[in-house]
Amino acid sequence: MRLAFMGSPAFSVPALRALVAAGHEVACVYAQPPRPAGRGQRETPCPVHQAAVEMGLPVRTPARVRREAAEHEAFAALLLDAAVVVAYGLILPRPMLEAPRMGCLNIHASLLPRWRGAAPIQAAVLAGDAETGITIMRMDEGLDTGPMLLREATPVGPRETAAGVHDRLSEMGARLVLRALAERPPETPQPAEGATYAPKLGKEDGRLDWAEPAAALDRRVRAMTPWPGAFTALGGEVLRVLSAEPAEGLAGRAPGTVLDEGLLVACGGGTALRLTRVQKAGRAAMEAGAFLRGHAVPAGTVLG
């Protein structure tokens, strides 16, 4: 088939590679424009852009498409059978949604209608969902509301991070979109009940509120790995919490109080969370024991 591919982050790259390997003609790749990155803040292409260049595919990086008539015309001129959209980052207007013969197929990282929106993987881990998955849908003008073609579930392990789920779903999405294009399964409207939303994350979503129970904070640490990253304050500095696990608490201690010499922290409801891997700004990540050998954090210290 003659396709356009629209995606930006690393999550999208396996699908692009799978489409090319399967023999589909990728007429154009659309990706977010290069942005400053790294210490030198050099303009850097996103992962999909880089992969497309490696494969010799033409790339377009418009900053906007919603009201750009020239972009609509250029897209229609590609004479596509379909477009495959995976975490592109721009809202497609009706003229672009309707231009391909088969429409625009989206690889969404949840079991729709649960976790529509920008951060479905993190939302599933944060909520403690027992499973998540991939939905292939035909896009409409709503927010992840289009009819479904395929769905496949995968369990979320009790100690999994968003990073681990991300990698598994990325490969699953690549496999399922090939099936959708080959089999052209019938469309199924999304159920009217059970819709939930996963808004775009910001850095503050990683802040640990010690008044919450340890189980909820453990999920937040795992959900925010690797980005935006869970954090707390230690002595006026930011302390990133890279991994942690619930532990036996000590009733009556104020949330955020360090309870022992091993970074066991009091949480809400008489629970506690042991920090097992941490990182201070500008320093290397360390296991808790190594960190404590160079940074004294005595019992009674209050994190916030």
Rank of each mutant, 00 (worst) to 15 (best):
residue 6 M to L: 15
residue 8 S to A: 05
residue 8 S to N: 07
residue 13 V to F: 03
residue 16 L to S: 11
residue 16 L to A: 11
residue 16 L to E: 12
residue 22 A to F: 06
residue 24 H to G: 05
residue 27 A to E: 12
residue 27 A to W: 04
residue 28 C to T: 11
residue 28 C to S: 03
residue 34 P to D: 13
residue 35 R to I: 07
residue 41 Q to G: 05
residue 41 Q to H: 13
residue 42 R to I: 12
residue 48 V to C: 00
residue 52 A to R: 10
residue 56 G to P: 00
residue 58 P to H: 00
residue 59 V to G: 02
residue 59 V to I: 04
residue 61 T to E: 12
residue 62 P to H: 09
residue 63 A to K: 13
residue 77 A to H: 02
residue 79 L to V: 07
residue 80 L to E: 04
residue 81 D to H: 15
residue 84 V to I: 15
residue 84 V to R: 06
residue 86 V to D: 11
residue 95 P to V: 02
residue 101 R to G: 04
residue 102 M to H: 13
residue 115 W to A: 10
residue 115 W to C: 08
residue 122 Q to M: 03
residue 125 V to P: 01
residue 130 A to G: 15
residue 130 A to N: 08
residue 132 T to Y: 06
residue 137 M to A: 12
residue 138 R to C: 06
residue 144 D to E: 11
residue 146 G to L: 10
residue 153 A to T: 12
residue 154 T to N: 02
residue 154 T to M: 15
residue 164 G to N: 00
residue 166 H to M: 12
residue 166 H to K: 04
residue 169 L to P: 10
residue 175 R to S: 15
residue 176 L to F: 05
residue 177 V to M: 08
residue 178 L to M: 11
residue 193 E to F: 07
residue 194 G to L: 02
residue 194 G to S: 01
residue 195 A to T: 06
residue 196 T to R: 09
residue 200 K to F: 11
residue 210 W to V: 09
residue 214 A to R: 10
residue 228 P to M: 01
residue 229 G to V: 00
residue 230 A to E: 02
residue 231 F to D: 07
residue 233 A to I: 13
residue 233 A to V: 12
residue 234 L to Q: 05
residue 235 G to M: 07
residue 236 G to D: 13
residue 241 V to S: 03
residue 242 L to E: 15
residue 251 A to K: 14
residue 253 R to K: 13
residue 255 P to S: 08
residue 260 D to T: 07
residue 265 V to N: 01
residue 265 V to L: 03
residue 270 G to Q: 00
residue 272 A to T: 09
residue 275 L to W: 13
residue 275 L to C: 08
residue 276 T to W: 02
residue 279 Q to M: 15
residue 281 A to D: 14
residue 281 A to S: 13
